[in-house]
Amino acid sequence: MKKNSFVSKYASVLTAFGGVIILMIIFTIMNKNFISGSNLPKLIRSICPYLLVGIGQGIVCITGNIDLSIGSVLGMSAMISATLICNGVNVILAVIIDLIACLAVGCVNGVLVGKFKLPPFIGTLGTMTICRGLAEIVNGNYNTGDIGNGKLQTGFRDLFYYGKVGPVYFGVIVALIVWFCFNYMMNYTRTGRHIYAIGSNVDAARLSGVNVFKTTTVAYLVSAFCSFMAGLVTMAAAGMGSMQAGLSYEMYGVAAAVIGGISTLGGSGYLIGVIAGASVWAILQNGLTLANVPVAMRNIIIGLIVVACVLIDIMRRSGIKIGGKK
């Protein structure tokens, strides 16, 4: 009985990881270089930005909302930190200022959706446009220059992107630490429980004394923090801030979350699934390029596979339901 319930409880997550394994096998067959020592570590590193935005978007989805501003906050994060550093501000201070700015956006989202009850789609669409505009004017409508090679800058770049320990890049470890912290929050703290509750039945939660406004805002703050981190990763990789950074990343976040089994309707899903979801996305990008699939076909294939993943999950869910009650 116990064994059965583990499988059924984590079914969507297991399906996602199954997908990861199948894709890896397919791509290795198509091009041996896929699992080579020069590709695999970089592939794993490329999962990080998707994982980070997937965590943020996933948690917001579990509350039954959505965050469209993720990509723009990512861009804003990259631009603010890079602009400050290029203008001589100490790297650590620049990162702190950047963090405060991004968290402020999270608060705004929380107030719009949690307090003023704006539909999340509209509210975060507004912050999305505003933040993209901010990303553009922070450096006067220019991409920033190179952040330089000072000790702190080099350390920054190594920590988030270039440095490795053995075959594992630091960036991967950083992303996993972020995942671990939020996973703990979701599964072992009151806040996490409340997040699931308001996504499942916000009225019941409110009547049971859950502070819906506070919980909604926490979710958006987490999302803003994840976008902030992803922005730092992007900026470290390029060594500069690009005004285009993060375009469409809110959608990648949705993809990573949904493939990983988190429902956009709220109340269900596990953060561990996001690891699988982000991996699927990164593997597809990398594998299709290595397999020399014509560029035009790539987007079509990625779209088809994502739709297939979600369909399989839906079919599995409704299959279980029919056998159940009256």
């Binding site: 270089n33 590709n39 992007t234 375009l247 990398n286 390029t289």
Partner: peptide
């Protein structure tokens, strides 16, 4: 195609190098 986005270009280049 990177659409002129340096982040995308970097990932594409990484993959090409691995290949």
């Amino acid at each position: 195609y990177s659409d002129g986005d340096n982040a995308k270009a970097q990932e594409l280049a990484n993959t090409l190098i691995a290949n």
